[in-house]
Amino acid sequence: MFEQTMFYLFAIVSVIAALFVVAGKNPISCAIALIVTLGALAGVFVLQEAHFVATIQVLVYAGAIMVLFVFVIMLLNLGPEDLEKTPRFSRLKGAGGIFAAAGAALLAWNFVSYAARAARVGPGFGGLAQISQKLFTEYIIPFEAISAVLMAAVVGAVVIAKREL
């Protein structure tokens, strides 16, 4: 019962915060709302026995990535004044909203029928040991590839953002 209560709490928080991300006026507010969403989702992950994922969700996403966003927003010094000049939404607002809603409805409608109960999982599921076990044996090559991707991204970001291109 507790688990369900917590899930609905986190889910509602994350959806409301996501709505704010999409509709918010000030980028900083949006970024904060996104952090809230990510945090709430980290709670959902914990409820799903995904402890490791929840941890790096907080560390990498809510921590590192969102700091980067906020940093860039501050760097560009985008206040609400700058944004007042142009409308928040593009011309496609109406159509986009309807289509997104339709997409969500369709997705959800497909999933409602998928009512299988969650399987019982053993102790240590989603823990560091289990994930490391897999990551460094079965998934070692994608893991190394990801490191290369990250390295390339770092170099690329530096080059692109350099003042003299």
Binding site: Q4, Y114, R117, A118
Partner: peptide, 18 residues
């Protein structure tokens, strides 16, 4: 325990919002 479909609905709603 929360059924998978609830999680999937959450996922769908968030995805549609994004």
């Amino acid at each position: 325990m929360v059924s998978t479909s609830h999680l999937l609905i959450l996922s769908a709603v968030l995805f549609a919002l994004g």
